[in-house]
Design a protein around this nucleic acid. Sequence first.
DNA 1: TGGGTCCGGATTGTTAACAATATTAGGTTA
DNA 2: TAACCTAATATTGTTAACAATCCGGACCCA
Lengths: 241, 241
Amino acid sequence: MPPYTEQPGEQGVTIADRVFSRLRKAIVEGQIPAGSKISEPELATEYGISRGPLRDAMGRLEACHLVERRANVGARVVSLSQEDLLELYLLREALEGMAARLAAERMPATEIDSLRQLLKQHEQRADVKDGIAYFQKEGDLDFHYRIIKASGNARLIQFLCNELYHLMRMYRYQFGMASSRARIAFREHRHIVEAIADRDPEMAELIMRRHIRSSRVNVEMLFDAQASLTRRQGQDLGATG
Amino acid sequence: MPPYTEQPGEQGVTIADRVFSRLRKAIVEGQIPAGSKISEPELATEYGISRGPLRDAMGRLEACHLVERRANVGARVVSLSQEDLLELYLLREALEGMAARLAAERMPATEIDSLRQLLKQHEQRADVKDGIAYFQKEGDLDFHYRIIKASGNARLIQFLCNELYHLMRMYRYQFGMASSRARIAFREHRHIVEAIADRDPEMAELIMRRHIRSSRVNVEMLFDAQASLTRRQGQDLGATG
DNA sequence: TGGGTCCGGATTGTTAACAATATTAGGTTA
DNA sequence: TAACCTAATATTGTTAACAATCCGGACCCA
């Protein structure tokens, strides 16, 4: 009875590949809590493998910033912070702005059509109530994913889609930032596509940057509201205690 | 007689740390040729270590894009291409533009002074003939390094200074792009510092982006000239052969 | 009671042997 | 002669045992 059985979406020829995918999913979705310590022997026996490929997988997780290691001490799942999320938004603003610029220069007309269809799908689902969550969760990422791919810049794609993508997903899972911005974001997406279709790189970059910056500001306000709320709660506790 | 003796600049507590630094240096400086295959047992015996920490080090080298691995096949030193270098310049344009923007917002006045002093040193050395090469080789990187650090964005710093920095150094070593642009580049550096001192983020980003784009265009022209040259040589060979 | 030192347990880093995979050379056949 | 199959070989992936390092608690001392 092998304790490790392959699951869909865990493609990869070597054990380290598969356990990497599996661990990444567990971390992103919070099954292994953020900030928690990871014991190598424990995980190894749990997955029914040896420590060798596990350490390999851990190294890759470290490379995409999902775990942090200290020599002779151990590894912890990365702990998410509000500051870090805001920093990530700045990175995305710069890089995805560039991606939009390049997409406007190079994206084939057929793919632009395909992108328009994607937005139409989003529009239909956005009418449904549950659809908003969907839109925020995966649809938005899908859209950005496509623009990045359309940039045709292998390094840009590699960095955003492999190294940062899962970290962003982790933030979405754990902070769960569904918001009233869904409709506004959707409209911004349409403007971006229009700029790309117009072959206007400057405009495409500008709108994409503003789009991401708006998301950032939105999140920032959310954090501020949260902070003032907890502060008030703290005061209440102080009064009653 | 241990075949492995620590060298300066190879700090790191674990064997994997040290061999990683050492391998990285060897690859960047071309002692291990670009595109060449890496044999694990060979390197392991050469460094007097086992394959375990070597594989660990290889994994990290892969993470910063200096080697490429294929399962059950092996690892090769990354082979540099002109297209890839041009892609890298686009990344830098986006990210270092953002870094300059942030630096203009946050860089302490004392550090701005220090940066001015650095430029003064460059100015003095730029007068010397050998100085131009120095300026192009390390001085330029130093300047950009400082701006990036001054951005205060940990992710930005991490990505540019750890993951991409050594790859850029590798390109400089192997393509050796000293050029007549040294003086122009120096003047652009001064403009960037002025914009930062003026606390003008827009301007700082704009100039930095133009600065990097100019480098990119310069390299592009160099490649074109090179290509037409080899093409002509090919024709000559065809005529004489 | 507070601080410091030392020891034991647990965890990580490292090693060498074992298993599985891909490449290459050689032979065979159409 | 060229294409294909087969087997040998070398390389990588994996495992389990060994060594080095760090963390926590007990003990001692001021």
